[in-house]
C-alpha cells in the first residue's frame, strides 16, 4: 500500500511537471502564433477589423500576466480544454484529438501487443531450443528484420502491396462508403485498412522482443534455481514456464510498458506513410500548418501516455514480482 501511494505521488508530480513544461514551451518560442494565424486569414481575403477581433477572441488570445495565464491554463487542462485548432477551425483541439486517438490506440496499440506477445513467445521457443535449427532460423530472421529502417519498410509495403498490386488501400482507416458503426462491412474495411500498417509495425519491432526475451531466458537458464528445478525432475514445460520464462519476463515488462507509452507518440511515421487518420498524422498536419494549440494538446497527450504507462509498469511489477510487493525499494 505504501508502495502504491508513493507511486501515485510520483505520478502526480510527473504530470504536473509535464503540464508546466507544455505551458512554457510555446511562450519561449519566437513569434506569436496567433499573429501568424491572423496574417493567414488576412491573406485569404480582406476582413473587417471587427471580424478579426471576433476571431482573435475565439482563438483564445491570452490576457493578463504569465501567472494569471498559467492559472487559467491549469484550469483549462483539468477540463480538457485546449482551445480551438487554427487549422481545423472552428473545431476544438479536444474534438480533433478525440477523433484521432482511437485510431492510433487501435492500430499501434494492437500491433504493439501482438508484437510483444508473439516476439516473447518465439523468444521462449528459441531459448528452449537454443543451438537447434528452430533457434537458428528465428534468431537470423529477427536480426535481419531488426535492421530494417521502418520508413523504408513502410514505403516498400505501400508501393508493392497497395500501389502496384492493389491488395490493400493506399490510405485512410476505413472505407467512407460504409456508414461508421459496429457492423460487418465497416469492421472488414477497418481491418483491411489497418492490416498493412499493423504488419509493418509488427515486422519492424518483433525481432527486438524475440532477441531480448531469448537473451533473458538464456541468462535465467544459468540460475541455480533452474538447475535445482531440473534436479527435482519437474516436467520440462513447467520448468520452462514457471522457473525460466516468468523470471526472464520481468526485465522485459518495463520495456513493454514503455512501448505502450510510446504508442501514441511513436505512431508518427506509420501514420504519415499510410496516411492513417490518427494522432501522428494529426501532429504532422499541425506542424505543417503551425497550429500551436493543436500541437500543444497532442504533446500533452503523448507525455501523459508515457507517464501513465510508467505508472502501470510499476504496478504490473507488483503483480508479477513478489520481491517488490513487500518492502521493496524503487
Amino acid at each position: 500500500m505504501r508502495y502504491f501511494v508513493r507511486r501515485v505521488i510520483i505520478l502526480l508530480c510527473t504530470l504536473w511537471v509535464a503540464i508546466t513544461v507544455n505551458f512554457m514551451i510555446p511562450r519561449l518560442m519566437p513569434g506569436n502564433p496567433v499573429e501568424t494565424m491572423m496574417a493567414r486569414f488576412h491573406e485569404r481575403g480582406s476582413m473587417s477589423p471587427s471580424a478579426m477581433k471576433a476571431i482573435a477572441l475565439m482563438l483564445g488570445v491570452k490576457h493578463g500576466n504569465v501567472f494569471q495565464q498559467y492559472w487559467q491554463y491549469l484550469g483549462e487542462v483539468v477540463h480538457f480544454n485546449f482551445g480551438v485548432s487554427y487549422t481545423y477551425f472552428p473545431y476544438t483541439v479536444t474534438y480533433m484529438i478525440a477523433h484521432a486517438l482511437p485510431w492510433t490506440l487501435g492500430l499501434v496499440g494492437i500491433s504493439t501487443l501482438i508484437s510483444f506477445g508473439l516476439g516473447t513467445a518465439l523468444g521462449i521457443v528459441a531459448a528452449m531450443r537454443r543451438g537447434k535449427s528452430a533457434d537458428g532460423v528465428l534468431t537470423t530472421i529477427s536480426s535481419f528484420t531488426n535492421t530494417f529502417p521502418y520508413f523504408w519498410l513502410g514505403l516498400a509495403a505501400v508501393y508493392v502491396l497497395a500501389f502496384v498490386l492493389h491488395w490493400f488501400p493506399l490510405s485512410g482507416a476505413y472505407n467512407a462508403a460504409f456508414p461508421t458503426g459496429f457492423h460487418w462491412s465497416f469492421i472488414v474495411s477497418v481491418v483491411h485498412h489497418g492490416f498493412l500498417p499493423a504488419m509493418t509495425i509488427v515486422i519492424s519491432s518483433i525481432g527486438g522482443w524475440l532477441l531480448g526475451m531469448r537473451n533473458n531466458m538464456i541468462n535465467t537458464l544459468n540460475e541455480d534455481y533452474v538447475l535445482l528445478a531440473n534436479a527435482k525432475g519437474l516436467k520440462s514445460r513447467w520448468v520452462a514456464w514457471m522457473y525460466v520464462a516468468r523470471n526472464a519476463l520481468l526485465p522485459n515488462l518495463t520495456g513493454f510498458a514503455m512501448a505502450l507509452g510510446f504508442v501514441v507518440g511513436g505512431s508518427l511515421l506509420t501514420e504519415i506513410v499510410f496516411s492513417y487518420p490518427g494522432i501522428g498524422f494529426l501532429l504532422y498536419n499541425a506542424v505543417i500548418n503551425e497550429d500551436y494549440p493543436l500541437m500543444q494538446g497532442i504533446f500533452l497527450i503523448i507525455v501523459v501516455c508515457v507517464v501513465l504507462a510508467n505508472f502501470f509498469a510499476d504496478l504490473a511489477y507488483v503483480l508479477f514480482d513478489p520481491r517488490v510487493r513487500r518492502g521493496g525499494t524503487s
Partner: peptide
C-alpha cells in the same frame, strides 16, 4: 524415466541456497 527417478532417487542441495529457490514462487 530419468525425470521420474530424479529427486526420488537422488536429490541435491546447492552451495548457494540463496539462489536455489525460485524468487517468484512461494
Amino acid at each position: 524415466s530419468m525425470r521420474k527417478a530424479r529427486w526420488e532417487t537422488v536429490s541435491v542441495v546447492l552451495q548457494s541456497g540463496m539462489n536455489a529457490l525460485n524468487p517468484i514462487m512461494t
